[in-house]
C-alpha cells in the first residue's frame, strides 16, 4: 500500500497548485462553472465502507464519466448525488455534497426537490406501464410545469425531439412504452428525465443493456444534451468514456483514484492504478 502511494507521488509532478476535488488537468474546451461539489464523502452499507473520502468538483454542461472495475463504488457515488441511496435502509452517508450552495444531505433538504433538479436514467430501461405520451407527460403534469393540454403536447414533443425519438414514435404516442425496442425505451427514459427540466442528469450505465447501434445513438444524444444539461454517466466501457466525456473520474475500491481531463486520462494517466486499468491490466 505504501509502495503504491509512493508510486502515485512519484507520478504526480504538480504543474500547478491543486485543491482536492479538482481535475489533474483542465480540459480547455469544457465549461467550468461549478455544478456539484463533493467533499470527504464516505458511505457505508451496514459496516462495509463503500465510498472513502471522495472529493470531486463537477462542472456544468459537460459530460463527466465515472469509470472503474465493477464494485468500485461508482454507481453508489452516482446515487448519492440525488439521494437514491435513501431507499436502501442500511446505508449511512457522511460528508458534503453541495449543489447550488446547499448541502443535499442536510436534514432540511427535501430529497424530492433534489431529484427534480437531478434526474436519473437507469441501467435497464424502465418505462412506466403507460402510453409513450403518458410516460413523458406524467412528471411535468405532477410538477405543475404545464397547465394546458396544448402546453403539455408541446412539452412531450420537445422532450421526444431532444431525445431523438420523435420521428420514430410520433404516430404511436398512445401505445404502451413497453412496446418499444430496448434502445428506444432507453431514449424514452431520457426524454422522460429531460421533460422535467433538471439541471443534472445522472446516467447509470445507460447503454449496458443495449446493442451497439442503440449505444451509438445514445452516445450522440449525450453529446447533444450536454449543451443543456450537466451529465454524469457511469460506464463500464472505456471507449465510451473516451468518446463522450469531457472529464473522467477513475474509481477503485471505493476511492476516487484520479479525476482528469478525458483525453489526458486515456493518453497519459496521472496515477499508476488508472494506467493499469486503462491498459487493461485489471478490471
Amino acid at each position: 500500500m505504501n509502495q503504491q502511494t509512493a508510486q502515485i507521488d512519484a507520478h504526480s509532478a504538480p504543474n500547478h497548485e491543486r485543491s482536492p476535488g479538482q481535475p489533474v488537468n483542465h480540459n480547455e474546451d469544457a465549461n467550468h462553472a461549478l455544478s456539484i461539489r463533493v467533499r470527504d464523502l464516505n458511505l457505508w452499507y451496514g459496516n462495509n465502507q463503500a465510498l472513502k473520502n471522495i472529493n470531486i468538483d463537477i462542472y456544468q454542461k459537460n459530460v463527466t464519466a465515472l469509470i472503474g472495475p465493477s464494485g468500485c463504488g461508482k454507481s453508489t457515488f452516482l446515487r448519492c448525488l440525488n439521494r437514491m441511496n435513501d431507499l436502501i435502509r442500511s446505508v449511512r452517508v457522511q460528508g458534503l455534497v453541495e449543489m447550488d450552495g446547499r448541502d443535499v444531505n442536510d436534514a432540511k433538504m427535501d430529497e424530492v426537490a433534489l431529484r427534480r433538479r437531478v434526474g436519473m436514467v437507469f441501467q435497464k430501461p424502465n418505462p412506466f406501464p403507460k402510453s409513450i405520451y403518458e410516460n413523458i407527460a406524467y412528471a411535468p403534469r405532477m410538477h405543475d410545469l404545464v397547465s394546458r393540454k396544448a402546453e403539455q403536447d408541446e412539452l412531450v414533443e420537445q422532450a421526444l425531439r431532444d431525445a431523438g425519438l420523435w420521428n420514430e414514435v410520433k404516430d404511436k404516442l398512445q401505445e404502451p412504452g413497453t412496446s418499444l425496442s430496448g434502445g428506444q425505451q432507453q431514449r424514452l427514459c431520457i426524454a422522460r428525465a429531460i421533460a422535467v427540466k433538471p439541471d443534472v442528469i445522472l446516467m447509470d450505465e445507460p447503454t449496458s443493456a443495449l446493442d451497439p447501434i442503440s449505444t451509438a445513438t445514445i452516445e450522440d444524444l449525450m453529446d447533444k444534451l450536454k449543451k443543456q444539461f450537466t451529465i454524469i454517466t457511469v460506464t463500464h466501457n472505456m471507449q465510451q468514456a473516451a468518446r463522450v466525456a469531457d472529464y473522467t473520474a477513475f474509481f477503485h475500491l471505493g476511492e476516487m483514484i484520479e479525476y482528469n481531463d478525458t483525453r489526458m486520462m486515456f493518453s497519459n494517466p496521472h496515477t499508476k492504478k488508472a494506467e493499469d486499468y486503462i491498459t487493461g491490466r485489471y478490471g
Binding site: D100, R102, M109, D110, V112, A113, L114, R116, R117, M142, H143, D144, K197, P198, D199
Partner: peptide, 17 residues
C-alpha cells in the same frame, strides 16, 4: 432556467401532505 431548491420545496408542501 430551472427553479431553485426553495421554490421547488415550497411547491412540494402540498404534495408532501
Amino acid at each position: 432556467m430551472s427553479q431553485s431548491f426553495d421554490e421547488i420545496t415550497a411547491q412540494l408542501k402540498r404534495r408532501h401532505r
